[in-house]
Lab assay of single mutants.
Amino acid sequence: DVEEQIRRLEEVLKKNQPVTWNGTTYTDPNEIKKVIEELRK
């Protein structure tokens, strides 16, 4: 469920934690926001 994935990513973003997505770890909040934007398409 895309909405659920977006919610999880936004939670991690608020906590300033790194996100691992498709084998890539993102630590930059701007990169995480880009992943969220991609999911919304």
Rank of each mutant, 00 (worst) to 15 (best):
Y26D: 01
T25D: 06
K15D: 10
D28Y: 02
T20A: 08
V35Y: 04
T20K: 13
P18V: 10
V12F: 14
I6S: 01
K41D: 06
V2E: 04
R7T: 09
Y26E: 01
N30S: 14
E11N: 05
G23P: 03
T25A: 03
L13W: 05
E3Y: 15
I36M: 06
R40T: 04
N22M: 09
P18A: 10
L39Q: 01
K34F: 07
K41W: 05
R7N: 07
P29T: 07
W21L: 15
R40V: 05
W21F: 15
E31K: 04
K14V: 11
Q5K: 06
L39I: 05
T27L: 06
R7Q: 09
K14M: 11
E37W: 03
V12D: 12
T27H: 09
E3V: 12
K34E: 05
V12E: 12
R7K: 12
E10R: 04
E31N: 03
E3R: 12
V12C: 15
T24A: 09
L39P: 00
L9C: 04
T20E: 15
E4T: 10
E38G: 08
G23E: 08
E38I: 12
E37T: 07
E31A: 06
P18D: 14
V19Y: 08
P29N: 05
T24L: 13
K33R: 13
D28L: 03
K34A: 13
I36R: 01
V19F: 11
L39T: 01
G23M: 00
V35A: 05
I6W: 03
Y26K: 00
V35Q: 03
T20L: 13
T25H: 06
N30F: 12
T24P: 01
N30P: 03
G23W: 00
E38M: 14
N30Q: 10
W21D: 07
L13G: 02
L39D: 00
V19T: 05
Y26G: 01
R8E: 11
Y26V: 05
Q17K: 08
V19D: 11
K41F: 06
R7P: 01
T27M: 06
Q17I: 11
N30L: 12
G23R: 00
N16V: 04
P18G: 12
P29F: 08
K15A: 13
Y26N: 00
E3L: 13
L39N: 00
N16S: 08
K14D: 13
P18Q: 10
E11W: 02
K14N: 11
N16W: 11
V2W: 06
W21Q: 14
G23V: 00
I36T: 01
Q5W: 11
I36V: 04
K33W: 11
L39R: 00
E3P: 06
V2D: 03
K33T: 08
L9W: 02
Q17A: 08
V35G: 00
E37V: 05
E4V: 10
N30W: 10
E11M: 07
P29V: 10
R7E: 07
N22R: 04
E37A: 12
V2K: 05
W21V: 15
I32Q: 00
K34I: 07
K33D: 03
E11V: 05
G23L: 01
E31R: 02
K14P: 03
T25Y: 14
L13E: 02
E4K: 07
T27I: 05
E4N: 13
L39V: 03
L9E: 00
E11T: 05
N30K: 08
